[in-house]
Amino acid sequence: MAWNEPGGGNNKGPKDPWGGGDQGPPDLDEALQKLQEKLGGIFGGKSGSGGSGGGGGPAFSAPLLGVLALGAAVVWGLMGFYQIDEQERAVVLRFGKYLETVQPGLQWNPPLVDEVIKVNTTKVRAASFREIMLTQDENIVEVNMSVQYVINDPDKFVLKVRDPEISLQHAAQSALRHVVGDTGMDLVLTEGRAKIASDVQTRLQEYLNLYETGILVSKVNVDDSKPPSQVQAAFDDVIKAREDEERVKNEAQAYANGIVPEARGGAQRQIEEANAYKEQVIANAQGEADRFSKLLAEYRKAPEVTRERLYLDAIQNVYGNTSKVMVDVEGGNNMMYLPLDKLAEQSQQRAVRAPSLDSNTLREITNMVTEQLRRDAAASGSTSRRGGR
């Protein structure tokens, strides 16, 4: 027969397999009482007397409970102390609601009640982006950009936006696309990077202020901008052609800078020479006019003498500029021709072949030639007179 089947005798309930046929199910109060007695024995407490249905005394003594409560309070109070560094600010939340922003120093807040979130407000953070986008002239470019930022408002950084750095990334991409979309490809690839970075920084800060992220952008750099790799060779050829164009322009400008001043100098020199010639002609004309006026006055005083003098001056000028001499023999009809030009050429040839002569030797030779001419002239005169007789 099973143990829980009704049995004989005086048992009215199920049969207990551990004995005690008249005992019911275990009492929960009695089990708790036994546990308290055991704990009291461990911690030095006293258990009161009691039967199966009677209540016992307290498991812990009052002094022990006070010590435990005091120790728990001390531990709880010590857990509330924390240190805020100089470069940090702390946002305090009480039961999830914003309470205050704590400045640097030793601070205390009730633990398990307040939540303290520390934020470094001086650390410069950086984020990099790489985007492929269209320019204003519908060309594709690849731009690498880096953003440096700090947290200037820890309240907004912690509470206003769920993930401020993700918001920063999205805002930076949007600002970059907007600025590059309004710029031509040549500026994006060459000297327009600085302006693009400045415009992106301004627009990005406007976005972050609108989102209330508490982030301050300190610097935006366009690290690199290039065409896609598929068309890199064609862009390199275009850039090389542009550089050749600039080089040729510079060479032409340098040539112009050398020629134009020289031409201006030559023109100025000719102008100065013309002015000098003009002054010279005017001065000569005035001098000749003055000389003629004075000569006219002298001619009126002595016409014969003045006429003779003018004739001699004219003959002297004519003979002084000619290389041929005509000698009129007195009393005869023959005129002797003296080729001084040929004599000069012969003397030059002799000077080339012979050593150079000094001035005394030349004077002697001249005197000899003159004397010989006189003798010849005298001989010719005497011969003509005899023929006349």
Rank of each mutant, 00 (worst) to 15 (best):
A233D: 06
T202E: 15
I42R: 09
E272P: 09
E5M: 03
G56T: 15
A90R: 00
E364Q: 12
A378N: 04
S146M: 00
L28I: 10
A285E: 06
P154R: 03
Q372D: 14
E308N: 11
P25D: 11
A90W: 02
S229L: 12
P154W: 05
G105A: 12
F95E: 15
L168N: 03
V281L: 06
T135E: 02
W3A: 15
M145T: 04
R269E: 06
R162T: 01
D163L: 00
V318M: 11
T370Q: 08
G266D: 07
A267Q: 05
G388L: 13
K324A: 14
T306R: 05
D85M: 11
V124P: 10
S347H: 07
A69C: 13
V116Y: 01
I239Q: 14
V91A: 08
I271M: 10
K12G: 07
F60Y: 11
V369D: 15
I215C: 07
S218G: 10
G258D: 11
I117L: 13
S47M: 09
M326E: 15
Q346L: 14
N360K: 10
D236W: 03
G332W: 09
Y337C: 05
V369H: 10
V147G: 07
R193Y: 15
V143T: 07
L204K: 01
S167F: 01
R177Y: 02
A283T: 08
V222N: 03
S323Y: 01
S52P: 05
L362P: 00
Y82P: 04
G48H: 04
N257P: 14
G40R: 02
A73N: 06
N209S: 11
A2E: 08
A256C: 05
D341G: 06
R375I: 09
N317F: 04
Q169R: 00
M133H: 00
N333C: 13
V369G: 13
V119W: 13
G96L: 11
Q169T: 03
P111C: 09
N321F: 06
T122G: 13
V102G: 07
D186Q: 10
A171W: 02
P110Q: 12
E272M: 15
P355T: 08
I365Q: 13
